[in-house]
């Protein structure tokens, strides 16, 4: 895939969030609608196209964990807030001219996570677990070796301790587990198709109604080989 080849040619060790989601979209993994904005003059047109409320994020392949660097603004309601957030983020970025991602804000109380890792013995492995801050705090995750069959995807969802979050709890709809299974199966395919990908973090996947939508993604590349 061109995005990956070009990134590796440039000696980069990761894809930007925007690129990562294009890669996932090619595997029919549903992600947020978003537009990459290079300068302030394109900001409001992008905001209008996506529609408020919005999320703005500094977008660079060099910035893996944006939240920790304070480069994310959420729940932006109008043009005025958008401009303020854009300037704020730009000021926080070390390089000039770093693009900003204008992203739809997905509403949902449940956050899940998925990912890919390469095990020395078993090759590409897919991860599933609770998302957001709970991923690291609870480490409630399960793994399967790619390629995943649909049954594997469904079983790995049931395997986590917090699997009840997928059901109709507290008046929320049950999660569309078939859509979620497709995401997990397809992450495995990404890993098998692109050996240059070292690791993937997809976190959070926010459940909007019943639909899982990828809100943030990180793709790490192995550029040690030719």
């Amino acid at each position: 895939m061109d995005i990956i080849d070009e990134a590796i040619k440039k000696g980069r060790s990761s894809l930007s969030e925007f690129e990562a989601k294009q890669l996932l979209a090619a595997y029919r993994i549903p992600a947020t609608r978003e537009i990459l904005v290079e300068s302030e003059k394109n900001l409001l047109a992008a905001a209008a196209a996506i529609g408020y409320p919005l999320v703005l994020k500094g977008c660079s392949a060099d910035i893996a964990h944006k939240t920790e660097k304070n480069l994310v603004r959420i729940d932006i309601r109008n043009d005025q807030e958008a401009v303020a957030a854009f300037r704020d983020i730009s000021a926080g970025m070390e390089q000039d001219q770093m693009p900003v991602l204008v992203q739809e804000m997905i509403q949902g109380q449940r956050e899940l996570a998925a990912g890919l890792v390469r095990d020395a013995r078993f090759g590409a492995c897919v991860m599933f677990g609770l998302g957001g801050i709970f991923t690291e705090v609870l480490e409630d995750v399960s793994f399967r070796v790619a390629p995943l069959e649909r049954l594997d995807a469904l079983e790995m969802m049931r395997e986590i301790k917090g699997h009840k979050i997928l059901t109709a709890v507290r008046g929320m709809e049950a999660v569309d587990i078939n859509a979620l299974a497709d995401i997990l199966v397809n992450i495995g395919r990404v890993g098998l198709d692109h050996r240059q990908i070292k690791e993937i973090d997809i976190n959070p996947i926010i459940i909007s109604g019943s639909r899982p939508i990828v809100v943030d993604a990180l793709v790490l590349l192995d550029n040690s080989e030719e």
Binding site: S13, S14, A64, A113, G115, L116, V117, D119, R121, F122, C125, M127, G129, T135, E136, E139, V141, S142, F143, R144, V145, M156, K198, E199, I200, D201, N203, L218, L220
Partner: peptide, 17 residues
């Protein structure tokens, strides 16, 4: 580099396999 990898201990992978 990723949270996924930090949680992929050998035992978690074996269990899945």
């Amino acid at each position: 580099g990723s949270h996924t990898a930090s949680m992929a201990g050998p035992d978690e992978i074996y269990r899945g396999f």
